[in-house]
Amino acid sequence: MTKAELVEKVAAQINLTKKQTEVVVNTVFQSITESLAQGKKVELRGFGSFRVRSRNARVGRNPKSGDRVDVPAKRVPFFKAGKELRELVDGELDIIADTE
């Protein structure tokens, strides 16, 4: 599903225009992005949490040439699905496995 499809699905469920819904969807993801950029954690009950993890600088290798390359320290956004979402996602597989 793409963002456009998400907007359409959400707009169909609530009393908002597609335009308004798009603002809502964009605001949600912009808020998460900005919070992570400031180093803040985002916790959404029933969904999951977003945080930033630090990676140390390291010496890597160019896999093609074998040359050493310096990989600088960086921060990586990380998402951990909440218990509910984790179980929901795994649920359907259980149903398929049971009927096979």
């Binding site: 809502v24 949600v28 029933g46 969904f47 996602v89 359907e92 597989l93």
Partner: peptide, 16 residues
């Protein structure tokens, strides 16, 4: 509206 957005994402993911 925020709840519907999150719920819709969950619903889609749970469908695989």
């Amino acid at each position: 509206a925020v709840d519907v957005v999150l719920d819709e994402i969950k619903a889609v993911l749970s469908k695989g």
